[in-house]
Structure formats: C-alpha cells, structure tokens
C-alpha cells in the first residue's frame, strides 16, 4: 500500500527506445542469418552491441538516481515486484520445455511404440512397427532421419558435481547477503566472489560436457527427441547461468565500489533471486533430464 511520500517519476529517457531498436536489430540480424543472408551476422552483432550499450546506460541511470537518493520505499517495492514477476515469466518459459519432455516420455513415445493406445490405435501397428520405447531413446522411429548416439551423459558424473556447485553457490550468495546486512564489506565481496567463481566453473564444466557429448558420444541436437529436449533444456539453462554469473560479477564490482548499504541493496537481491531461480531450474534438469 502506498505511503505518503512523493513518488519518483523519471523524466523522459532515451533508453527504452534504444532498447527497442537494439532488440529489433538483433532479431532482424538473426532472421537474416536464418535466411542465409551474409550481412545477417553483422546486423546481429550491431544489435547485440546496441543491447549491451542500452543495458549499461539504463542501469547507470538507475544507479545514479538510486545513489542520489531519489527513490522512496515505494519505488523499491515496484522494482521488487517487477523482478519477481519477471522471474515467474521465466519459470513459465522453462515450463514449455519441461512440458515437451514430459509429453514425449508420457505420451508420444508410448503411442509410437504401441503402449497405452489412447486415441492412436494403429500408430505402432501400421507406421512404426519396429519401434520400441526406451528412455533415453536411442533407436528412432525413423532411424534414417536422425543420428544415433553412443551413450548419454550419466547423471552421476559431471552433472552431479555441477549440482553440488550450483547448490553451493546458492549458499554462498546467501552468506554474501547476510554479510551485506551486517555491513561487512570484506565478507560480502569474498562470498560474492565465490559465487561468481562457482557460476563460471559450472559453465566451464557444462561446456566440457557438451564437447564430450558431441565429440565422443555422438549425442547431438539432431539425436531425436532425447537430443532435442536435452540440448534445449540444458542450453537455455546454461545461457541463463551465464547471464546470471555476469550479473553477479557486475554486482561484485558494484559492491567493491561500495554501492550497497545495509538497508538499500535491491540490485543485489534481484540478482540473488535470479540466481536461486537458475538453481531451482537446474535441480529440475538434474532430476528429469539426467537422472530419471
């Protein structure tokens, strides 16, 4: 509920329109690349550069306003709500991919292999009579169209280590928060540094795992529904971890500069929330993609 203070309404700003343009150029470049237009990649790079410029500029403005003490408690609440609901939208984005995984395992593969006839009597009998259900699914209904892999990434190898890394990073970021609340700057920076490091180590391991899967196991995105769900889920997650780790690094940098106070450190919390979200998604991934 509103407080009586005057609400801060920013003056007109160029950042939103720069942001829009940068996204537009990025999408345009991407679309051109898909259509094999040579200039596409340059357009894409310009778009991404603009995007970075926009983020830097926009956040710089917000930071400056925040330091200048223009924000009331109420503005802070608006920011918090914004971040919270944004994370929910991200959850729903991942839900689509988890849904696809669930659907493939619970419905389409059983139907194709003749289990649980459902509404699809005859699918197995007349179309894919040699196909048998399995998970991970390595023999495709049409083996000619998709590549076979030698093996899949076992859960209790690098993925388990990665789970430990991310869980640990969830703990370290919380320690950092506690340190911040006690205004213990050294501890804050140390814990944050540990979190960033854990994040990047995770990404490093994940990249190694990808290389191993593609080169040694022949597991590619073209490997049927298993390869599709595996790479899309872990890929988008890896992308989010990378973004999260970069954001954490920025926060680390800012806390070294002394931007945050005991009471007022929303940016820190927002990134921490985001980090926890990435963490939880990984747990889902570990369980449903790698393990069972």
């Amino acid at each position: 509920m509103a407080t009586q203070e005057i609400y801060y309404i920013p003056e007109g700003s160029k950042w939103p329109i720069v942001g829009t343009l940068s996204l537009f150029v990025t999408f345009l470049g991407g679309a051109m690349m898909f259509n094999s237009v040579d200039a596409g990649k340059y357009v894409l790079i310009i778009g991404l550069a603009l995007l970075t410029y926009m983020f830097a500029g926009w956040f710089a403005d917000v930071i400056a306003e925040s330091i200048a003490g223009k924000y009331s408690k109420q503005v802070d609440v608006s920011f918090r709500m914004g971040m919270g609901w944004f994370i929910l939208s991200e959850v729903m984005f991942f839900a689509a991919f988890f849904g696809a995984l669930y659907y493939a395992r619970m419905f389409s593969i059983p139907w194709l292999s003749g289990e649980g006839q459902g509404g699809h009597n005859g699918t197995h009998e007349f179309l894919w009579s040699s196909f048998q259900a399995s998970w991970p699914m390595n023999v495709m209904p049409d083996p000619a169209k998709y590549t076979q892999y030698k093996d899949v990434v076992p859960a209790f190898g690098v993925p388990a280590i990665n789970t430990a890394l991310l869980l640990a990073s969830g703990v370290t970021v919380t320690f950092a928060h506690w340190a911040l609340k006690k205004a213990n700057r050294t501890a804050l920076s140390a814990w944050l540094f540990a979190t960033v490091a854990l994040g990047f180590i995770f990404v490093y391991f994940q990249a190694g795992e990808y290389a191993h899967a593609m080169n040694d196991l022949d597991l590619t995105i073209n490997g049927g529904i298993y390869g599709s769900t595996f790479y899309l889920l872990t890929g988008f997650h890896g992308f989010h971890v990378t973004m999260g780790a970069v954001m954490l690094a920025v926060i680390l940098f800012r806390s070294l500069k002394g931007h945050f106070s005991k009471k007022d450190h929303f940016a820190f919390e927002a990134v921490a929330w985001y980090w926890h979200f990435v963490d939880v998604v990984w747990l889902g991934l570990f369980i449903f993609v790698y393990w069972i």
């Binding site: 139907w111 194709l112 509404g119 699809h120 009597n121 005859g122 699918t123 009998e125 007349f126 179309l127 894919w128 209904p141």
Partner: peptide, 9 residues
C-alpha cells in the same frame, strides 16, 4: 485429424 506419423481411428 490426419497427423503425420500417427494414426487416428
């Protein structure tokens, strides 16, 4: 519906 790869009856 006639769906590629599936049969309805």
């Amino acid at each position: 519906d006639a769906i590629p790869g599936f049969i309805n009856d």
